[in-house]
Design a protein around this nucleic acid. Structure first.
Length: 280
DNA sequence: CATGGGTCCTGAGTGC
DNA sequence: TGCACTCAGGACCCAT
Protein backbone atom coordinates (compact mmCIF):
# COMPACT_ATOMS: atom_id res chain seq x y z
CA UNK A 1 0.00 0.00 0.00
CA UNK A 2 2.07 2.89 -1.22
CA UNK A 3 2.15 5.86 1.12
CA UNK A 4 4.45 8.86 0.99
CA UNK A 5 7.75 6.94 1.49
CA UNK A 6 6.85 4.34 -1.13
CA UNK A 7 5.62 6.91 -3.66
CA UNK A 8 8.75 8.99 -3.08
CA UNK A 9 10.92 5.91 -3.63
CA UNK A 10 9.04 5.13 -6.85
CA UNK A 11 9.43 8.76 -7.93
CA UNK A 12 13.19 8.63 -7.44
CA UNK A 13 13.51 5.40 -9.41
CA UNK A 14 11.35 6.74 -12.24
CA UNK A 15 13.35 9.94 -12.33
CA UNK A 16 16.38 7.82 -13.15
CA UNK A 17 14.54 5.55 -15.54
CA UNK A 18 12.26 7.67 -17.71
CA UNK A 19 13.21 11.36 -17.66
CA UNK A 20 14.29 12.49 -21.11
CA UNK A 21 12.50 9.66 -22.87
CA UNK A 22 9.93 10.31 -25.60
CA UNK A 23 6.64 8.46 -25.86
CA UNK A 24 5.88 6.93 -29.22
CA UNK A 25 2.68 5.07 -28.43
CA UNK A 26 0.38 4.37 -25.49
CA UNK A 27 -1.68 1.21 -25.01
CA UNK A 28 -4.50 1.29 -22.50
CA UNK A 29 -5.72 -2.22 -21.76
CA UNK A 30 -7.96 -1.34 -18.83
CA UNK A 31 -9.83 1.90 -19.54
CA UNK A 32 -11.10 2.30 -15.97
CA UNK A 33 -7.58 3.35 -14.89
CA UNK A 34 -7.81 6.49 -17.04
CA UNK A 35 -10.11 9.09 -15.47
CA UNK A 36 -9.13 12.10 -17.58
CA UNK A 37 -9.74 12.50 -20.47
CA UNK A 38 -12.84 10.36 -20.63
CA UNK A 39 -11.83 8.91 -23.97
CA UNK A 40 -8.81 6.59 -23.66
CA UNK A 41 -8.09 6.96 -27.38
CA UNK A 42 -7.64 10.66 -26.77
CA UNK A 43 -5.44 9.92 -23.75
CA UNK A 44 -3.15 7.85 -25.95
CA UNK A 45 -3.20 10.28 -28.87
CA UNK A 46 -2.33 13.30 -26.76
CA UNK A 47 0.64 11.57 -25.18
CA UNK A 48 2.31 10.32 -28.31
CA UNK A 49 5.32 12.50 -29.09
CA UNK A 50 5.61 13.84 -25.55
CA UNK A 51 8.92 13.79 -23.68
CA UNK A 52 9.01 13.22 -19.91
CA UNK A 53 10.72 16.24 -18.41
CA UNK A 54 10.44 15.43 -14.71
CA UNK A 55 8.72 13.17 -12.21
CA UNK A 56 7.43 14.90 -9.11
CA UNK A 57 5.40 13.92 -6.07
CA UNK A 58 2.67 15.62 -4.09
CA UNK A 59 1.22 13.59 -1.23
CA UNK A 60 0.73 10.12 -2.71
CA UNK A 61 0.36 11.43 -6.27
CA UNK A 62 3.03 11.10 -8.94
CA UNK A 63 3.18 13.94 -11.47
CA UNK A 64 4.90 13.25 -14.77
CA UNK A 65 5.66 16.55 -16.45
CA UNK A 66 5.55 16.08 -20.20
CA UNK A 67 4.84 19.43 -21.76
CA UNK A 68 2.28 20.59 -22.57
CA UNK A 69 0.70 17.91 -20.37
CA UNK A 70 0.96 16.64 -16.83
CA UNK A 71 0.15 13.01 -16.15
CA UNK A 72 -1.12 12.58 -12.62
CA UNK A 73 -0.87 9.01 -11.38
CA UNK A 74 -2.13 7.55 -8.12
CA UNK A 75 -1.03 4.02 -7.24
CA UNK A 76 -3.73 3.48 -4.61
CA UNK A 77 -3.23 -0.01 -3.19
CA UNK A 78 -1.04 -1.94 -5.54
CA UNK A 79 -0.10 0.15 -8.54
CA UNK A 80 3.42 -0.51 -9.85
CA UNK A 81 5.64 0.90 -12.58
CA UNK A 82 8.45 -0.92 -14.31
CA UNK A 83 10.67 -0.22 -17.30
CA UNK A 84 11.00 -3.11 -19.72
CA UNK A 85 12.06 -3.63 -23.31
CA UNK A 86 9.11 -4.04 -25.65
CA UNK A 87 10.16 -7.61 -26.43
CA UNK A 88 9.90 -8.75 -22.80
CA UNK A 89 6.72 -10.63 -21.85
CA UNK A 90 4.00 -8.73 -20.02
CA UNK A 91 3.40 -9.44 -16.37
CA UNK A 92 -0.22 -10.26 -15.47
CA UNK A 93 -2.38 -7.23 -14.61
CA UNK A 94 -0.44 -4.89 -16.88
CA UNK A 95 -3.01 -2.23 -17.71
CA UNK A 96 -1.22 0.74 -19.30
CA UNK A 97 1.87 0.67 -21.52
CA UNK A 98 3.88 3.74 -22.50
CA UNK A 99 6.20 2.79 -25.34
CA UNK A 100 9.22 5.03 -25.85
CA UNK A 101 10.94 5.78 -29.14
CA UNK A 102 13.98 3.74 -28.01
CA UNK A 103 11.97 0.51 -27.75
CA UNK A 104 11.63 0.54 -23.98
CA UNK A 105 8.26 0.57 -22.26
CA UNK A 106 7.08 2.08 -19.00
CA UNK A 107 4.51 -0.45 -17.82
CA UNK A 108 1.80 0.12 -15.23
CA UNK A 109 0.39 -2.92 -13.50
CA UNK A 110 -2.20 -2.98 -10.76
CA UNK A 111 -3.75 -6.17 -9.42
CA UNK A 112 -6.57 -4.43 -7.59
CA UNK A 113 -7.30 -2.00 -10.42
CA UNK A 114 -7.74 0.85 -7.94
CA UNK A 115 -5.08 3.15 -9.40
CA UNK A 116 -5.96 6.22 -11.46
CA UNK A 117 -4.41 8.43 -14.14
CA UNK A 118 -5.43 11.94 -15.12
CA UNK A 119 -3.88 13.73 -18.07
CA UNK A 120 -4.29 17.50 -17.74
CA UNK A 121 -2.90 20.70 -19.22
CA UNK A 122 -3.26 23.03 -16.23
CA UNK A 123 -3.66 23.03 -12.50
CA UNK A 124 -7.27 24.03 -13.02
CA UNK A 125 -7.90 20.49 -14.26
CA UNK A 126 -6.16 18.70 -11.39
CA UNK A 127 -8.30 16.01 -9.77
CA UNK A 128 -10.11 17.08 -6.63
CA UNK A 129 -8.06 14.89 -4.32
CA UNK A 130 -4.88 16.62 -5.46
CA UNK A 131 -6.13 20.19 -5.21
CA UNK A 132 -7.58 19.59 -1.74
CA UNK A 133 -4.41 18.05 -0.36
CA UNK A 134 -3.15 19.35 2.97
CA UNK A 135 0.46 20.41 3.56
CA UNK A 136 3.41 18.14 2.85
CA UNK A 137 4.71 16.72 6.13
CA UNK A 138 8.15 18.28 5.54
CA UNK A 139 6.85 21.68 4.47
CA UNK A 140 8.43 24.21 6.81
CA UNK A 141 5.23 26.24 6.80
CA UNK A 142 3.66 23.31 8.65
CA UNK A 143 4.58 24.51 12.12
CA UNK A 144 3.71 22.64 15.31
CA UNK A 145 1.26 25.41 16.10
CA UNK A 146 -0.49 25.16 12.73
CA UNK A 147 -0.62 21.38 13.08
CA UNK A 148 -2.16 21.71 16.53
CA UNK A 149 -4.77 24.14 15.21
CA UNK A 150 -5.64 21.77 12.38
CA UNK A 151 -6.18 18.91 14.80
CA UNK A 152 -8.03 21.04 17.29
CA UNK A 153 -10.83 21.76 14.81
CA UNK A 154 -11.68 18.11 14.44
CA UNK A 155 -13.69 15.80 16.68
CA UNK A 156 -13.01 12.57 14.79
CA UNK A 157 -10.45 10.07 16.13
CA UNK A 158 -6.88 11.27 15.57
CA UNK A 159 -6.32 8.24 13.34
CA UNK A 160 -9.13 9.31 10.99
CA UNK A 161 -7.85 12.88 10.87
CA UNK A 162 -4.32 11.79 9.98
CA UNK A 163 -5.65 9.51 7.24
CA UNK A 164 -7.62 12.46 5.85
CA UNK A 165 -5.35 13.83 3.13
CA UNK A 166 -6.73 17.35 3.59
CA UNK A 167 -5.19 17.54 7.10
CA UNK A 168 -1.69 16.45 6.12
CA UNK A 169 -0.67 14.83 2.85
CA UNK A 170 0.86 11.42 2.31
CA UNK A 171 0.06 9.37 5.40
CA UNK A 172 -1.70 6.02 5.10
CA UNK A 173 -2.59 3.20 7.41
CA UNK A 174 0.95 1.99 8.13
CA UNK A 175 2.63 5.29 8.97
CA UNK A 176 -0.33 6.66 10.90
CA UNK A 177 -0.19 3.67 13.24
CA UNK A 178 3.59 3.99 13.53
CA UNK A 179 3.56 7.75 14.18
CA UNK A 180 0.84 7.43 16.83
CA UNK A 181 2.88 4.74 18.55
CA UNK A 182 6.01 6.88 18.55
CA UNK A 183 4.04 9.83 19.92
CA UNK A 184 2.34 7.58 22.52
CA UNK A 185 -1.14 8.64 21.43
CA UNK A 186 -4.08 6.23 21.30
CA UNK A 187 -5.57 6.06 17.79
CA UNK A 188 -9.13 6.53 19.07
CA UNK A 189 -8.43 9.75 20.92
CA UNK A 190 -10.45 12.65 19.53
CA UNK A 191 -8.24 15.00 17.53
CA UNK A 192 -9.52 18.01 19.46
CA UNK A 193 -8.32 16.45 22.71
CA UNK A 194 -4.71 16.44 21.52
CA UNK A 195 -2.67 18.94 23.52
CA UNK A 196 -0.20 21.38 21.97
CA UNK A 197 2.65 19.33 23.39
CA UNK A 198 1.23 16.12 21.97
CA UNK A 199 0.67 17.73 18.57
CA UNK A 200 4.28 18.85 18.59
CA UNK A 201 5.49 15.35 19.45
CA UNK A 202 3.19 13.86 16.85
CA UNK A 203 4.56 16.08 14.10
CA UNK A 204 8.11 15.11 15.12
CA UNK A 205 7.09 11.44 15.09
CA UNK A 206 5.50 11.74 11.64
CA UNK A 207 8.60 13.37 10.19
CA UNK A 208 10.87 10.88 11.92
CA UNK A 209 9.07 7.78 10.71
CA UNK A 210 8.68 9.11 7.16
CA UNK A 211 12.35 10.10 6.98
CA UNK A 212 13.53 6.68 8.11
CA UNK A 213 11.06 4.90 5.81
CA UNK A 214 12.27 6.87 2.78
CA UNK A 215 15.87 6.06 3.73
CA UNK A 216 14.92 2.36 3.80
CA UNK A 217 13.18 2.60 0.42
CA UNK A 218 9.67 2.21 1.84
CA UNK A 219 7.87 -0.74 3.42
CA UNK A 220 7.09 -3.87 1.44
CA UNK A 221 4.16 -5.47 3.23
CA UNK A 222 2.59 -7.35 0.41
CA UNK A 223 3.32 -6.27 -3.13
CA UNK A 224 5.18 -2.98 -3.07
CA UNK A 225 8.28 -2.61 -5.28
CA UNK A 226 9.89 0.51 -6.73
CA UNK A 227 10.47 1.26 -10.42
CA UNK A 228 13.47 -1.08 -10.42
CA UNK A 229 11.38 -3.92 -9.00
CA UNK A 230 13.17 -3.67 -5.67
CA UNK A 231 11.44 -4.17 -2.34
CA UNK A 232 11.66 -1.69 0.48
CA UNK A 233 13.29 -2.47 3.81
CA UNK A 234 11.33 -0.52 6.38
CA UNK A 235 8.87 -3.33 7.21
CA UNK A 236 11.41 -4.83 9.62
CA UNK A 237 11.47 -1.56 11.58
CA UNK A 238 7.71 -1.39 12.12
CA UNK A 239 6.73 -1.20 15.79
CA UNK A 240 2.99 -1.86 15.58
CA UNK A 241 1.68 -2.25 12.03
CA UNK A 242 1.09 -5.94 11.38
CA UNK A 243 2.56 -6.76 14.80
CA UNK A 244 -0.67 -7.74 16.57
CA UNK A 245 0.07 -10.40 19.18
CA UNK A 246 3.79 -9.66 19.18
CA UNK A 247 5.40 -8.02 22.22
CA UNK A 248 5.79 -4.25 22.11
CA UNK A 249 9.43 -3.39 21.46
CA UNK A 250 9.33 -0.85 24.25
CA UNK A 251 7.33 -2.54 27.04
CA UNK A 252 6.72 -6.13 25.84
CA UNK A 253 2.94 -5.81 26.17
CA UNK A 254 1.25 -7.64 23.27
CA UNK A 255 0.32 -5.31 20.41
CA UNK A 256 -3.43 -5.15 19.85
CA UNK A 257 -5.41 -4.74 16.67
CA UNK A 258 -8.74 -2.93 16.58
CA UNK A 259 -10.83 -1.17 13.96
CA UNK A 260 -10.71 2.62 13.80
CA UNK A 261 -12.04 4.75 10.94
CA UNK A 262 -12.86 1.51 9.15
CA UNK A 263 -9.21 0.47 9.10
CA UNK A 264 -7.22 -2.19 10.85
CA UNK A 265 -5.43 -0.30 13.63
CA UNK A 266 -2.44 -1.51 15.58
CA UNK A 267 -1.29 -0.07 18.88
CA UNK A 268 0.32 -0.87 22.20
CA UNK A 269 -2.31 -0.77 24.97
CA UNK A 270 0.29 0.20 27.54
CA UNK A 271 2.38 2.77 25.63
CA UNK A 272 -0.65 4.40 24.01
CA UNK A 273 -3.06 5.26 26.78
CA UNK A 274 -6.69 4.75 25.93
CA UNK A 275 -8.87 7.87 26.07
CA UNK A 276 -11.64 8.05 28.60
CA UNK A 277 -14.59 6.05 27.42
CA UNK A 278 -17.59 8.09 26.55
CA UNK A 279 -20.62 6.31 27.97
CA UNK A 280 -24.24 7.12 27.50
C1' DC B 1 -19.79 21.13 7.12
C1' DA B 2 -18.05 17.02 9.48
C1' DT B 3 -18.47 12.35 10.03
C1' DG B 4 -18.88 7.52 9.12
C1' DG B 5 -20.20 3.71 6.25
C1' DG B 6 -20.40 1.53 1.67
C1' DT B 7 -18.00 0.80 -2.64
C1' DC B 8 -14.56 -0.45 -6.08
C1' DC B 9 -11.17 -4.82 -6.93
C1' DT B 10 -8.43 -9.44 -6.65
C1' DG B 11 -5.77 -12.73 -4.14
C1' DA B 12 -4.50 -14.63 0.25
C1' DG B 13 -6.05 -16.67 4.21
C1' DT B 14 -9.51 -19.10 7.15
C1' DG B 15 -13.01 -22.35 8.55
C1' DC B 16 -15.92 -26.16 7.80
C1' DT C 1 -9.85 -31.41 -1.03
C1' DG C 2 -12.82 -27.89 -2.20
C1' DC C 3 -15.70 -24.29 -1.59
C1' DA C 4 -17.70 -20.14 0.62
C1' DC C 5 -16.53 -16.54 3.07
C1' DT C 6 -13.69 -12.66 5.11
C1' DC C 7 -10.14 -9.45 4.90
C1' DA C 8 -6.75 -6.06 3.00
C1' DG C 9 -7.43 -0.43 2.24
C1' DG C 10 -7.09 4.93 -0.64
C1' DA C 11 -10.12 7.82 -2.24
C1' DC C 12 -14.59 8.81 -3.54
C1' DC C 13 -19.73 8.90 -3.00
C1' DC C 14 -23.53 9.47 -0.26
C1' DA C 15 -26.66 9.66 3.82
C1' DT C 16 -27.13 11.62 8.22
Amino acid sequence: MPELPEVETVRRSLEDLVVGKTIEQVDVRLPRIIRTPNDVIQFATLLSGCTIESVQRRGKYLLFSMPPYTLISHLRMEGQYSLRHQQEPYAPHTHVIFRFTNGEELRYRDVRQFGTMDLVTSEADYPKGLTELGPEPFDETLTPRLFYQTLHKRTAPIKAVLLDQTSIAGLGNIYVDEALFLAKIHPERSANQITQKQAEHLLVAIRDVLTRAIEAGGSSIKSYVNGYGRHGGFQIQLHVYGQDGNPCRVCATPIEKIRVAGRGTHYCPKCQVRPRRKRA
